[in-house]
């Protein structure tokens, strides 16, 4: 079952990767990547938005790391989908006892809950203009609402929609199954998985390029300078993938709130963010001018890497939070803290 879901998802994303590439705007100031309604319809038909749920909620009872593998695959093919957001939104709704999302969903913070109304805007909401359902954390309530009104249509450097929304209608809410830090870290985990996937694809493209592009009468990949720098990229791709898996394995702990998920998710966002900068840089350096062109398919990956490392908390923020916690425990607490983290610690 696990392999089947990932195979289905991977095949679907691969089929749409070419069209997704052409859906990218020619000019980053021009607007956001075009929505692909046909692709979303097929994602829904396959049940992928429910991938994190138990069978009782309509899901597949997959291990979290498998389900989140879909987010990684979608990123590797650079398809314009709020799949991860919808998976997490449904997971939160299910655990809060609220109805699941209808169609594409997204996650937001910002507005305050006043009775059954939301006051204030939610900024930089991923795919906000396309979301049929928005899931917000307001105080200690998880809020489910229909699509908001877009007051500012913006996008990130990858051309993905990042909109400001306001909400006029009545909303439903329930006690939130996660606290605010873990809500943000669920977003961070999505970006960590996404960066891991984009890095894998960028490495694969870069290795292929190094093996096929010839200069000085031999493939680039035969030069030691290129080999050494691609090895550095590979170690960072490996660390990013490991970091994302480490945090994903602890997903259910986000509900218990013992801190194990929070610590691992911070570490994952920090490490994947660092790998994103290093990996994007080496990918472009190896591709030379070819990789800098609009028509070459590296930039949908590297622009996502540059965008995602700054979303849901950049490295500096989580480093500070994590470091403050480490120092508060003092030198005698540091090693026990490290060994208490991670799956099957």
């Amino acid at each position: 079952m696990q392999d089947i879901v990932l195979d289905m998802g991977g095949k679907l994303f691969a089929e749409h990767a070419e069209a997704a590439f052409h859906a990218h705007p020619k000019d980053t100031t021009e607007g956001a990547a075009s929505w692909m309604p046909g692709l979303w319809a097929q994602v829904g038909e396959l049940g992928l938005p429910l991938a994190l749920l138990s069978e009782e909620h309509g899901g597949f009872d997959l291990p979290a790391a498998t389900a989140m593998g879909l987010v990684r695959l979608a990123a590797a093919h650079a398809v314009p989908l709020p799949l991860g957001e919808t998976m997490i939104a449904n997971w939160l709704l299910a655990h809060a006892g609220l109805p699941l999302a209808e169609g594409p969903a997204t996650l937001a913070l910002g507005p305050e809950l006043d009775g059954d109304r939301l006051n204030g805007p939610a900024a930089r909401v991923a795919y906000g203009r396309h979301a049929a359902t928005v899931v917000l954390l307001a105080g200690d309530r998880l809020v489910r609402t229909d699509a908001g009104t877009v007051t500012e249509a913006s996008h990130n450097v990858a051309g993905e929609p990042r909109d400001t929304l306001v909400f006029a209608g009545e909303v439903t809410s329930a006690p939130a199954p996660v606290n605010k830090q873990n809500f943000r870290l669920l977003g961070a985990l999505l970006r960590a998985q996404g960066m891991a996937g984009a890095l894998e694809a960028a490495l694969s493209m870069t290795v292929d390029h190094a093996n096929s592009r010839e200069q000085f009468g031999r493939p680039l990949g035969k030069f030691q300078a290129i080999q050494q720098s691609l090895a550095v990229m590979a170690t960072n791709v490996a660390a990013a993938g490991a970091a994302a898996v480490m945090a994903t394995d602890l997903l259910s702990d986000a509900l218990a709130g013992t801190g194990a998920f929070a610590t691992a998710a911070m570490a994952a966002k920090i490490r994947t963010g660092e790998a994103a900068g290093i990996g994007a840089s080496i990918a472009h350096q190896t591709h030379g001018a070819i990789g800098f062109s609009q028509e070459y398919r590296l930039h949908p990956l590297t622009r996502r890497l540059w965008a995602w490392r700054d979303e849901w908390g950049r490295e500096a923020e989580w480093c500070e939070t994590l470091g403050t916690e480490v120092c508060a425990r003092g030198p005698d607490g540091f090693w026990p803290f490290l060994t208490s983290t991670g799956s099957a610690a």
């Binding site: 480490m246 911070m266 989580w318 470091g323 803290f337 991670g342």
Partner: peptide, 19 residues
């Protein structure tokens, strides 16, 4: 600055330990 540096090292060590 100190908290950030320590947090970054902790993150690296956690991931290396996982690996």
């Amino acid at each position: 600055a100190s908290a950030r540096a320590v947090g970054r090292m902790a993150a690296h060590l956690m991931v290396l330990r996982h690996m």
